[in-house]
Simulated scan of single mutants.
Amino acid sequence: MSRARNGWILPVSIVIALLLGLLPLPPVLQPLRPYWLALVLAYWVIEAPESAGLGFAFIVGLVADLMFGGLLGEQALRLVIMTFILQRFRARLRFFPLSQQALAIGVLLFNDRVVAGAVHLTLGEPALPWSYWWAPLLGMLLWPPLFLLLDATRLGKRK
Rank of each mutant, 00 (worst) to 15 (best):
Leu22Met: 15
Thr122Trp: 15
Asn6Pro: 02
Ala48Lys: 10
Tyr132Phe: 12
Gly61Glu: 05
Asn6Val: 06
Val12Tyr: 07
Phe147Glu: 06
Ala52Thr: 12
Pro31Met: 13
Thr83Phe: 00
Pro126Glu: 08
Glu125His: 03
Ala76Cys: 07
Leu20Pro: 00
Trp44Val: 08
Trp133Ser: 00
Arg5Ile: 05
Ala38Asn: 11
Gly139Phe: 08
Gln75Phe: 06
Leu103Arg: 02
Leu146Asp: 02
Ala135Tyr: 05
Leu62Val: 15
Ile46Tyr: 08
Leu128Val: 00
Gly106Tyr: 05
Ile16Trp: 05
Val45Leu: 01
Leu128Glu: 13
Tyr132Ser: 04
Leu93His: 13
Thr83Asn: 00
Ala4Ile: 13
Leu109Phe: 08
Arg94Ala: 11
Trp8Glu: 02
Ala76Gly: 15
Leu25Gly: 06
Ala102Pro: 00
Gly61Ala: 03
Leu77Gly: 02
Thr122Tyr: 14
Leu77Cys: 10
Gly124Val: 09
Met1Thr: 10
Thr122Asp: 04
Thr83Ala: 11
Leu98Asn: 04
Ile16Ala: 09
Arg92Pro: 12
Leu41Gln: 10
Ser99Cys: 01
Leu71Gly: 10
Leu146Glu: 02
Val15Gly: 07
Ser13Ile: 12
Ile85Trp: 09
Leu54Lys: 09
Leu23Phe: 10
Val12Trp: 12
Phe56Leu: 12
Ala52His: 02
Leu22Thr: 06
Phe56Lys: 03
Pro31Ala: 09
Ile85Arg: 04
Ala152Thr: 12
Leu29Gly: 06
Ile81Asn: 02
Glu125Pro: 01
Leu20His: 04
Gly55Cys: 08
Phe58Ser: 09
Gly117His: 12
Tyr43Ala: 03
Phe89Pro: 12
Ala64Cys: 10
Glu125Cys: 01
Gly73Glu: 04
Gly55Phe: 11
Asp112Glu: 08
Tyr43Ser: 04
Ala127Thr: 01
Pro126Arg: 11
Leu93Cys: 14
Pro145Gly: 04
Gly106Pro: 04
Met82Lys: 00
Val12Gln: 03
Arg3Phe: 00
Pro11Leu: 07
Ile9Leu: 09
Pro97Cys: 09
Gly73Asp: 02
Phe96Leu: 15
Ala48Glu: 06
Leu20Phe: 04
Arg33Ile: 07
Ile46Thr: 08
Ile105Phe: 10
Leu54Trp: 10
Leu123Met: 09
Leu79His: 14
Val63Trp: 05
Leu41Gly: 11
Thr122His: 11
Leu23Lys: 00
Leu146Gly: 01
